[in-house]
């Protein structure tokens, strides 16, 4: 099974990389862009049977390591 994990900065947390990219896009005359937020995307291969406790375990992976709950949100998608 494959799981996709998206980690994004929480609202209100300054994203210096996103701001730099926004500045570059503006410089390239893409004036319609009003904000850029940069996050992380991870693909996990799991060796588990369907219907187990993988959702719970994936959430735990995100809470404990893949995201830092102080500043980041996460979203899990499964194939």
């Amino acid at each position: 099974m494959k799981a996709k994990v998206y980690v994004t900065l929480k609202k209100g947390v300054l994203d210096p990389q996103g701001r730099a990219v926004l500045g570059a896009l503006k410089h390239m005359d893409f004036d319609e862009v009003t904000d850029v937020r940069i996050g992380k995307f991870m693909e996990l291969e799991l060796d588990v049977p369907e219907g187990g406790d993988e959702d719970k375990r994936l959430a735990e992976m995100c809470e404990r390591l893949l995201a830092n709950p102080v500043i980041e949100n996460y979203r899990i998608e499964r194939d």
Partner: peptide, 10 residues
């Protein structure tokens, strides 16, 4: 508590 993030000027 807290977290250390990337410097504001990168």
């Amino acid at each position: 508590p807290g977290v250390l993030m990337m410097n504001k000027d990168l």
